[in-house]
């Protein structure tokens, strides 16, 4: 197989848990600066695909390439650990349930990994924390613990934590699904800002409006396959597949 020419390249991704096949031969490419949305009902495999990109849920078959390097290499345990930590430092991830470290302040959450892994100084870390927290509008809460923050604020700190590693790629796994409706917009705003800065992003979401307005391309997944993909105005307005139409109809009804 030739070396990949795309920034992110997923080739024939396959994943099963026992007899259950959650990803069935999925191939996907993402270019630098692109924003790709993945939609689909729960159990469609969209989160599993996203988590395969940094090998959090290793694939049973297929390859994931990032910027010319294969992520899911078969290596000895020791070598794999070294390799994957290297890869993960280049990929930021934002979780549905934030997963902020509750025993650290916002500042410490943001600076812990850069301090440990990039060998930056205390002052540099401080500047970095201020810079990143300012970007997500959380500078004034820099010394707060997660337990003192609202859901939206937690998620913004979690985004700052991921950004502090200066990732090439950001993965969002239903970043606003666990939030109260009135807190969703503050997180979306931060993501829009990243889009304006041409951050490469893959966004798993159930918010059709947001996906439509921010993504360059949207994929609809169902039962472990990509049913349809295209620019948002095409996919949302004129879906060609019956399954896509069905999903969108249900979802738009639900939204009203």
């Amino acid at each position: 197989m030739t070396d990949p020419s795309h920034f992110v390249e997923i080739r024939h991704a396959q994943k099963s848990f026992g007899a259950l096949e959650v990803l069935k031969d999925i191939s996907l490419t993402v270019e630098r600066g692109q924003i790709v949305g993945i939609i689909g009902s729960s159990g469609s495999g969209k989160s599993t695909l996203l988590r395969a990109i940094n090998d959090l849920d290793p694939l049973t078959g297929g390859e994931v390439w990032l910027d010319g390097v294969q992520v899911n290499q078969k290596l000895s345990h020791r070598k794999y650990e070294k390799h994957i930590n290297q890869m993960r430092q280049q990929v930021g991830m934002v979780f549905q349930h934030f997963n902020l470290f509750p025993h650290m302040t916002a500042r410490e959450n943001v600076t812990m990994a850069p301090l440990m892994l990039k060998g930056i100084s205390k002052e540099e870390a401080n500047t970095l924390a201020k810079e990143q927290l300012d970007k997500v509008g959380m500078l004034e809460r820099i010394d707060y613990y997660p337990s003192q923050l609202s859901g939206g604020q937690k998620q913004r700190v979690a985004i700052a934590r991921a950004l502090a590693m200066k990732p090439k790629l950001m993965l969002f796994d239903e970043a606003t699904s666990a939030l109260d409706p009135e807190l969703v917009e503050e997180v979306n705003l931060v993501m829009r800002k990243l889009a304006e800065e041409h951050m490469t992003m893959i966004i798993v979401t159930h918010e059709m409006d947001f996906a439509a307005s921010v993504c360059d391309r949207v994929l609809f997944m169902d039962q472990g396959v990509v049913v349809e993909e295209g620019p948002p105005d095409v996919l949302f307005r004129n879906p060609t597949q019956p399954r896509t139409r069905e999903f969108l109809r249900k979802h738009l009804e639900g939204a009203k």
Binding site: V91, N99, L100, F101, M112, M116
Partner: peptide, 27 residues
């Protein structure tokens, strides 16, 4: 300790031992 904590630490690029030491054990 929630499994998401280990995951979050790993996605930042921390090794298992580092994640245990900095994230899981302190909690």
């Amino acid at each position: 300790v929630d499994k998401g904590q280990m995951e979050a630490a790993r996605t930042l690029g921390l090794s298992r031992t580092e994640a245990l030491r900095k994230v899981v054990v302190p909690q």
